[in-house]
Write a protein that binds this DNA or RNA. Structure first.
Lengths: 147, 147
DNA sequence: ACATTAATTGAGAATGAGTCTCAATTACAA
DNA sequence: TTGTAATTGAGACTCATTCTCAATTAATGT
């Protein structure tokens, strides 16, 4: 159901621009939507190969860009190991806390935070279209371990 | 005055770890502290060469890492064109708004935002050590141009 | 001042993510 | 089914960054 919906969004987006819904794009879309959280292009590519499906690295990169444009996924951040994407379909907007000990990425959302940011933008005459907040530190588990 | 102080911090940091205060590190420190805002390793390297000073790319990269560790600079973000650093010495903490039209990076600070984040961390049992907020959108100038 | 020694340097090779090229393939409208 | 422009994939390429290692040098003790 979710997948069908994602497919519809993607299909419409492609048609609107005279782009084609190829087998490769379909495979990449599917695998992307089946990622429940964050992912990176290389893992996605390997996952596709392991599943016996067909799509080149080049196509993976190309398709991820299109998926970003149509809002189904988002580039969360660039790291030393490459870009981290996130499946946005069915996910609400949220921000992240990154544990610098175990690398765990915790999602959170605060309405108050959103409102405050809007207010700050207004003060600067800035028209915000999106944001990225990453709080670094130690998660509950790692704090305990440190003792 | 500021430079001398930065030098002291760096020198102490190096000595504490049995590292050496070489000519190259001194040059890189100086040029880094004379950057008033954001910079990237390649520009810094070119600036050094243009000034007739001596330090290889390798040393620039190596030294920037050390300067990060001792808190004199910070890695602000990674882009498709490389890492953006920021001179932290004498700068207060602040967040950024990035204009996706002209690429301008606007600094801002909000006490309320800091407090709110602390509260959010507490709620998650997370011990925050720092954060990175980037609000994307259109700056005042670019908004006017768009009309 | 000088020797000792381990840290540092730099040139260029290596790495790795991501993009580009272009001939062969294929989706899709008519 | 056909025509045609979009797409694909293998591998070349780019570009930031790291690594290698022989030569150099800072810092310490005498």
């Amino acid at each position: 159901m979710k997948k069908a919906h994602g497919k519809l969004i993607f299909g419409t987006f492609l048609k609107d621009r005279g782009l084609r819904f190829t087998k490769e794009r379909s495979v990449i879309l599917q695998k992307t939507l089946s990622c429940s959280g964050h992912f990176d292009p290389e893992s996605l590519y390997l996952q596709i190969r392991e599943a016996g499906l067909k799509a080149s690295r080049a196509s993976v990169y190309r398709t991820l860009s299109i998926l970003c444009e149509c809002g189904l996924i988002e580039r969360v951040k660039k790291t030393e190991r490459g870009t981290i994407y996130e499946n946005m379909f069915g996910h609400e907007h949220h921000d992240h806390m990154l544990c610098i000990q175990c690398g765990n990425l915790i999602e959170f959302y605060s309405e108050e935070l959103e409102r405050l940011q809007e207010a700050l933008c207004k003060k600067q005459g800035f028209q915000g279209t999106g944001h990225n907040l990453e709080i670094r530190g130690y998660c509950r588990k790692c704090r305990k371990k440190k003792r």
